[in-house]
Computed example of a mutant assay.
Amino acid sequence: MDEQIISDVEQWLDEVVIGLELCPFAAKPRREGRVRIAVSHARDEEALLNDLQAELERLSDTPAEQLETTLLAIPDMLEDFADYNDFLDAVDLWVEHFGWEGELQVASFHPQYQFADTDSDDPGNLTNRSPWPLLHIIREESLEKIIAHYPDVDAIPERNVKRMKALSAEERNRLFPYLFG
């Protein structure tokens, strides 16, 4: 089961995130093998927070030259986006409580991801739709270094929404088989 989950996330990362250049910063660490994909089989929030804590510690304790970022897949809970979104409040409190603020941050991806003030079928939501609920742990220092040298970083979200809206039905089916297949 874990192999399939990891394969799903790798395919999404390679074909959607990197392939469509949604995150212009992801290709290099992926190519260099510095992206960890972990699977949590937690079935309650406390266990998931413990798994998240372990991944936060692993990332913090490992040099960026060895491990740049972690994607924590959550196949056994938080299938409903509203529940997942509510859980993100606990994640933020956890990061703050354990002193990771300013060092690590957690980004969110989910199969039902929906931005505020959008319809559920808005193609722009595809920018954050992953095959499994994910917590993406990011090193803030690395992100700040990359952003400092990237022109017009604020335009990335709008550019990504346009890219998703421009996809044909065939491309959506191929790239998001867990949604349209």
Results as ranks from 00 to 15, higher is better:
P157C: 09
L78K: 02
A148L: 13
L179H: 10
Q66G: 02
A73F: 07
F87L: 04
A64S: 14
G102C: 08
H110W: 08
P24K: 03
D51H: 10
K162R: 13
W94D: 00
T70R: 01
M77V: 04
V16Y: 02
L175K: 08
A90S: 15
I146E: 11
D154Y: 03
P133F: 00
G102K: 04
I156N: 09
L22W: 09
V161N: 03
L20P: 12
E170T: 13
V95N: 00
E55Y: 04
E96V: 00
I156W: 06
P63Y: 00
H97Y: 00
D89Y: 05
F115M: 14
A64N: 04
F98N: 08
P177W: 11
Q105R: 13
N128F: 06
G99E: 09
D61M: 05
L143H: 09
D152S: 10
S130Y: 03
E45K: 13
D92R: 13
W12A: 10
P29I: 06
N85R: 14
R139G: 09
S142C: 07
D119N: 10
E68W: 00
L20A: 05
F109N: 06
D121P: 08
R172C: 11
L78S: 05
I156Q: 06
E158N: 05
L143I: 04
E55G: 03
P24I: 05
H110S: 13
